[in-house]
Design a protein around this nucleic acid. Structure first.
Length: 863
DNA sequence: TTGGCTGCATTTTTT
DNA sequence: ATGCAGCCAA
């Protein structure tokens, strides 16, 4: 491949810097404006370097400048650089910044994620170990689909196995580079569950191989195995990459660590002799081997938040012991946040006992105080967030500079609802990703199957989408035939006539489908030219292949023909997919179907951040890592949520949650909001939420409570103080500045007729002190208002009323007269259910009998 | 075989 | 509350 040609010119290897003495300032533009620690991190040379980079300490700058410095000084060729990041987004940004420093000089560098780098290697070397270069990459949904079949076949569900738990167990093992045999060797022989798991694991591996597919974890693990089993293959990369740089090193797992180890191994003299092309004199050390690559890792153990998926914090903690002669540079000066924000971050993280001391500081000022707010419910909390965002926006902060973080994806609902209502443009990062949508997966299944006609998951999926009368029975017959003949699924369908059990109609359908896939496959590789002319045979653009599939299957038309408005959205998503493919074709002409599939498989949540301009960003705190915003809201700062309930019994769980909180806090440049709710609905039931312990770890002077937890629970006293609520010296509700607090309550009834807007605004416009008395008073006032709102009736039934409306303690009994916004008046015949699930059976005068959820229905009592 | 209905589990974070 | 899975009827 062409990358290797870049090795040609004689390059000095890790030797004394050939040119311009670094470090002497000397107006080197790459060192201008760096602080001493940063400069050291750029110019240091040696076998290994650990850059301990606190949040916001300019590590990307250091990393990019270090690479540019190596190139500029002719210490390395671009092709000898391997830079590994965690997300594609980070990789793209790094490449961009290096190009900014070097121009075209960045050509030929490998700047990618662990996963992309491994795919690249595996595709090139796949044949060596029984795979084909066109292998499919299974995402977790695909893995689960496969596991589901296996568990069913083994009847393992009766032992409590689910695709999810078996999958995560397998994933954990693979991250440790263990296989089924390793597990079998250490398991309890007498435990049937263990033995069954080994069965599942083995069958899973076998099926993956048969499908010519890798799962996510394999990408790393198999690359390591490849290097270990084939030293000559490893030597190619060990020789090639002279400088390896790894970002977010604290989040590497054992497999990734091993990969780095393999890549930074010296090449033994006897391997050198087998190298193609022959090694050059200057590449060799005294023994006749090739010396190990230099390794630079950047990380911050305080930001390690992926232990749950195998990240091993020891990788960074023990780096110095691991890589002899390693130098350590600490970056502690923060260039991102105000001192108040940093103090809060330091205070929180300081409660983790087993950490290296590190203190972020900034030369900038204290900045604004952190704002705290406690809502009565998650809707109340969300409303506060929405209103603050409006205020920020009015005051000149762009929407794109604002982010809202949360612990779990399910928290987006309430937030989205209020943002929509407030007409605030926003986007949700992560969560249900574009490529996880059913219709997109359907369409992608065709492309996957074209690239890999042995993939049963893709094939099975495309059979049923769109519906064409092929059910489980027909699928099983075809699959059996496929397996018995050892042919691809496409061939099996092409020869459907030989499958006795199939009716004539199904045979026809199968053949037709096979012909379409074959035609598309021929298009994808290049017009089906003969071997000799293969070079001229141009592979068709991915967009054209996709278009052919969608046209022939009429997937879009069929969706449009349905009545459900959701299906219109699905059709649009498919149009969007075509656009995505076309864009890919334009950006990487001739890259081909396989490259497109790879890219799609490896896009991460944070990757589609690119076009964040003009919208508020919503994301989990995990997704937020590596990003920064002028204003940040951290929501749901409650016990059970942050720290999450699931983490409390796990060893080290709380510490990890604390680091997550730390990551969240340190994303903010100027303004930080911490919000929570005193009650939260989970599974439809409402439960009381306690403020997070992390709140108490923040010095009280740093937080300006707009509404403290004490005020909201009504049990003010103790909690107020514990939670730094302003005692007496309240900066309470409404005293916060030139804003009209009234909006908070008026928006409760947003969407209903404006008839009671006035009273709502009046009710809370008076400043209140943070004591219990007034908190209670306010709470009562709120209730009164809510009642008044109901009594007023009227309003728009279609507004997202459910959330804002909460009839709460509305008591109904058989015989009561009520008024419904839509149905008019009626009489209650009975009330069933309890609590929030009470249902009123009502006979309406106009429309007859209806069943209504008392809590949420737009109803009120008529006296 | 499909589509609709009912019942149930769901909520930790992701390359 | 919602979405998915499994069951049943057409």
């Amino acid at each position: 491949m062409s990358e290797f040609e870049l090795l040609e010119p004689g390059a000095p290897f890790g030797g004394p810097s050939a040119g311009g003495a670094p470090g002497e300032g000397g107006g080197d533009p790459l060192l201008d404006g760096l602080n001493p620690a940063q400069e050291r991190a750029v110019v240091s040379r040696g076998p290994a370097l650990l850059i301990v980079a606190g949040a916001g300490s300019g590590k990307t700058r250091v990393l990019t400048h270090r690479i540019a410095h190596l190139i500029r000084n002719k210490e390395a060729w671009p092709s000898q650089i391997l830079a590994i990041t965690f997300t594609n987004k980070a990789a793209a940004e790094m490449r961009e910044r290096i190009e900014g420093l070097l121009g075209d000089g960045a050509q030929g560098m490998w700047i990618s994620t662990f996963h992309s780098a491994c795919v690249r290697i595996l595709r090139r070397e796949a044949e060596r170990f029984g795979y084909v270069s066109g292998f499919t990459i299974y995402d977790s949904a695909d893995s689960r689909a496969l596991l589901k079949r296996i568990i069913k076949e083994l009847d393992a569900d009766t032992y409590g196995f689910t695709p999810a738990n078996a999958g995560s167990k397998i994933s954990k093992l693979k991250n440790e580079l263990s296989d089924a045999d390793d597990y079998a060797a250490t398991m309890n022989e007498n435990d049937p569950r263990d033995r069954l798991f080994v069965e599942i694991f083995k069958m899973y591996e076998q099926e993956l191989r048969r499908a010519n597919a890798f799962d996510f974890d394999d990408l790393i693990g198999q690359t390591v195995q490849l290097f270990r089993a084939h030293p000559d293959v490893a030597a190619v990369y060990q020789r090639r990459f002279r400088h390896i740089l790894v970002d977010e090193y604290q989040d590497t797992n054992h497999a990734q660590y091993s990969l780095i180890r393999e890549l930074t191994r010296a090449v033994a003299p006897e391997e050198v002799d087998r190298l193609m092309p022959p090694a050059r004199e200057r590449e060799l050390d005294a023994s006749g081997g090739i010396p190990p690559a230099s390794l630079t890792v950047v990380g911050d153990s305080d930001q390690s938040i992926y232990a749950f998926r195998g990240a091993d914090i020891r990788n960074i903690v023990e780096f110095e012991r691991d890589f002899r002669g390693a130098e350590v540079v600490k970056l502690e000066q923060n260039y991102r946040s105000t001192q108040n924000i940093l103090s809060a971050a330091n205070a929180v993280i300081g409660n983790n006992f087993d950490r290296q001391e590190k203190n972020l500081w900034t030369a900038e000022g204290d900045g604004a105080k952190i704002v705290g707010f406690t809502g009565y419910s998650q809707h109340d909390e969300a409303r506060f967030v929405a209103e603050e965002i409006e205020d920020l926006h009015r005051a000149g902060t762009a929407y794109g500079d604002i982010a809202v973080f949360y612990r779990t994806n399910s928290q987006t609902r309430a937030l989205e609802e209020l943002l929509i209502r407030s007409a605030i443009p926003y986007r949700v990062l992560g969560g249900t990703k574009f490529y996880e949508r059913a219709e997109i997966k359907d369409a992608m299944a065709y492309l996957t199957s074209i690239a890999n006609p042995y993939d049963p998951i893709a094939w099975s999926r495309l059979l049923g989408a769109p519906k064409r009368g092929v059910g489980p029975m027909a699928e099983a017959h075809l699959a059996n035939f496929q397996e018995a003949q050892g042919i691809s699924f496409h061939e099996a369908m092409l020869r459907a006539d030989e499958v006795g059990a199939l009716g004539p109609k199904l045979r026809g359908t199968a053949r037709q489908l096979a012909e379409l896939l074959t035609r598309a496959a021929r298009m994808a590789v290049g017009g089906g030219a003969t071997d000799d002319s293969a070079e001229e045979a141009q592979p068709a653009p991915v967009g054209d292949v996709l278009k052919l599939i969608l046209d022939e299957t009429e997937m879009i038309e069929k969706l449009r023909a349905k009545r459900d408005p959701q299906d219109d959205a699905r059709a649009e998503n498919l149009e969007e997919l075509i656009a995505v493919a076309r864009e890919f074709d334009a950006k990487q002409p001739g890259a081909g179907l396989l490259a497109f599939l790879t890219e799609v498989s490896l896009v991460a949540a944070a990757d589609d951040l690119d076009d964040t301009s003009g919208t508020v960003s919503l994301m989990t705190m995990h997704t937020a890592k590596g990003l920064e915003f002028k204003a940040v809201f951290i929501t749901g700062v409650e016990e059970g949520l942050l720290p999450h309930q699931m983490s409390v019994d796990e060893v080290g769980g709380i510490s990890e949650e604390r680091r997550l909180m730390y990551v969240g806090i340190t994303r903010a440049r100027e303004q930080l909001y911490l919000t929570l709710a005193s009650t939260r609905a989970t599974f439809g039931d409402i439960s009381v939420a306690m403020p997070s312990r992390f709140l108490q770890e923040i010095p009280e002077g740093l937080i300006d409570w707009r509404q403290s937890p004490g005020e909201v629970t009504g049990r003010g006293g103790t909690e107020s103080r514990a939670l730094n609520a302003p005692r007496g010296s309240s900066s309470g509700y409404g005293a916060g500045g030139p804003r009209s607090r009234g909006r908070i309550d008026s928006s409760v009834s947003f969407g209903s007729s404006g008839s009671r807007g006035g009273s709502g605004a009046a009710a809370v416009s008076e400043p209140a002190s943070g004591n219990m008395q007034s908190a209670l008073e306010k709470w009562r006032e709120r209730k009164r208002q809510a009642k008044a709102a109901q009594a007023a009736g009227g309003g728009f039934p279609n507004m997202i009323g459910g959330a804002a409306r909460d009839n709460g303690d509305l008591e109904l009994a058989s015989g009561d007269r009520i008024r419904h916004d839509e149905y008019g008046e009626g009489r209650v015949t009975s009330v069933t259910g309890v609590g929030s699930k009470r249902i009123a059976h009502v006979v309406f005068d106009a429309v007859g009998e209806r069943k209504l959820l008392v809590k949420l229905a737009p109803i009120s009592k008529v006296d």
